[in-house]
Design a protein around this nucleic acid. Structure first.
Lengths: 233, 233
DNA sequence: TTGAACTTGTAAAAGAATGTAAATGGAACC
DNA sequence: GGTTCCATTTACATTCTTTTACAAGTTCAA
């Protein structure tokens, strides 16, 4: 998945320039002019990296840094002026990973973004290694190899989409998830509004994990709402 | 091997004095009047220690510090004036190891250089000893010799690209790496956007390390995203 | 209960991405 | 010069995702 970067900057010109430069590198970029907008974006699509202007109106960059750092291990780069040296130090102490000084040298900026994204990924991999496997019935979802292991030792390979979908369901047992929400978690190509993709994939998953795919025990259809994963009885 | 020290200082008098003093101690000393010259020197002969004037024209000492620190664990001593206290603090935040104040007390300066070189060398050997190999399944990737050893003592030779690729994957288990990033990491960037190089190399690696290359246990394809290395057992 | 309007199931085809054997070309070595 | 090695490209087979098309199921007002 391409990394998601959020630019939080109130000056529209600067913000646009940054976004454009980043999009050229094929990053997924969202723009926010203040902390509220940023929070909305993060709620829908968590970021891998934040570029935060230190001198925002309202909730300022240092506050955002502290808040976000306490919530996740997202990468944070501060956008600073030549003359707020003290703020930079404070920023690093609050948990920012790096900073760049206005006016930007874009080559340098892109290098730092790339470098930090690498570090964020590495960090994430340490966590990925600890993610628990989930069991249901005779099956164990092996999150490190993205496949299903049966109790009898048989391995059932899952395709990417099947794995993502099952993972999403298994993570929130007992909750019906809409097709829209599920599509978000699977999306390879986003541009289809009335898509049957999820239904087809659900069908394939059922064939793989259900004893009788036409009378599923695990992946339950909720008419008009979506699908839910049965909680272990 | 005698330690290599690079002095980055634009004032020629100061630079010469420093070099002379250091050469008397039998260090190998290079001189650079700016960041560009320094980079040229480092490309040919990596340094053990940098002495960096904080108030350089062009790319300044703090920037150099930050850049070099992100690239290696070279020792860095900042050369500062009495009156840039803030810069010293920032410098240390950026990862400089120490600083000395102009005008220099040469006995003190040489003491600091000697002390830091000891630490740099110790650190380097500690790192080399720390994680020189990664194990997975029956295999051990020996990063100091750049080769792959089987538990039964057999050595599986890897080509340069195969080694770089496997190393990149093994370093971040549990995270899917895009073909783009992998191409970057194996350093043979040739602006072909639709390159199949990575796929071919992955295929060759699988033939070498997987029990059944068509159903890999370690190098897992994530359709539409890239490849990931399975974490842990 | 019936049937129109809707939602879901699914086989099959179309559209993309990946696997891989073989060919190509470039660099290092003799 | 020739030879070897190996990263890269090529070309085609295979696999995966999404769409399509229609069958089957569900809801609810009449």
């Amino acid at each position: 998945m391409t990394p998601h970067i959020v630019v939080i900057e109130d000056d529209i010109t600067t913000r646009r320039r940054l976004s454009t430069a980043l999009r050229k590198q094929l990053y997924r970029v969202s723009e926010a002019e203040n902390a509220d907008v940023m929070e909305g974006i993060l709620a829908r699509d968590p970021a891998d990296l934040l570029l935060v202007d230190i001198g925002l109106e309202g909730k300022d960059g240092l506050t955002i840094t502290r808040e976000q750092r306490s919530l996740s291990n997202v990468g944070i780069i501060l956008l600073t002026s030549r003359d707020d040296q003290i703020d930079r130090i404070v920023g690093l102490e609050m948990g920012a990973d790096d900073y760049v000084t206005k006016p930007f040298d874009y080559r340098e900026l892109l290098a730092r973004v790339k470098g930090l994204l690498v570090r964020v990924m590495e960090n994430r991999s340490a966590q990925a290694a600890q993610e628990p496997r989930t069991r249901f019935g005779d099956w164990t979802l092996d999150t490190s190899r993205r496949r299903l292991d049966n109790r009898d030792g048989r391995v059932e390979p899952l395709t990417r989409a099947e794995y993502e979908l099952l993972h999403a369901l298994v993570k929130t047992p007992g909750v019906a998830l809409s097709r829209d929400r599920l599509l978000d978690l699977i999306q390879q190509r986003r541009w289809a509004s009335d898509s049957r993709t999820i239904d087809v994939l659900i069908g394939r998953l059922r064939k793989k994990i259900e004893a009788d795919p036409s009378r599923p025990d695990w992946i339950i259809t909720v008419y008009g709402e979506g699908y839910l994963f049965a909680s272990e009885s």
